[in-house]
Amino acid sequence: MLIKTIFSGFGGQGVLSVGQTLARAAMLENKFVTYLPSYGAEVRGGTANCTVTISDEEIASPIASEPEFVVALNQPSFFRFQSLLPSGGMLLYNASLVSAESIRGDIETVGIPITDLAAELGNLKVANMVMLGAFIRISNLIVFDRMIKHLPDILGTGKAPLLKLNREALQRGYDYAKDIRR
């Protein structure tokens, strides 16, 4: 098993932190994992993306050449990164902010209104974690319950006050995606 996922969106949407959260969760399951952010001039101007690779064996290239998943938190990323998906890949997007439809007929697309779901939780900042919860249910890459158990370690001391909110957000996304299957 070797699965690559691109997380993308506006800077400030927590794109990089959601990638790191997934990578840490995978590490705690003793999987091989790499996290590679875009950097330098590429991230100036407001967009950010990162690639998380999760595998059962040593990872040769951390670069997303043919990702299985693209997660787009805003419309520009939706357009930019869907072209990277090979046939049969899956595009998860923020249905609250993306009004367009994919022009590709050979990929699966799943819209999740994460901004609206986060608003219901009272904090727009956790929209990224709502998406991660949904992503974990759909991708089945890691065990959700184990991740929730390890959440304090995964998020680190800096985010301890927001632990409960993050847990709720993950759960919200996870529940929302219960009927969506690959």
């Binding site: 790191q20 790499t34 996290y35 590679l36 951390p62």
Partner: peptide, 10 residues
């Protein structure tokens, strides 16, 4: 190289 520097791994 730039990739190794920017890369996160366990």
């Amino acid at each position: 190289d730039g990739m190794l520097g920017q890369l996160m791994e366990p």
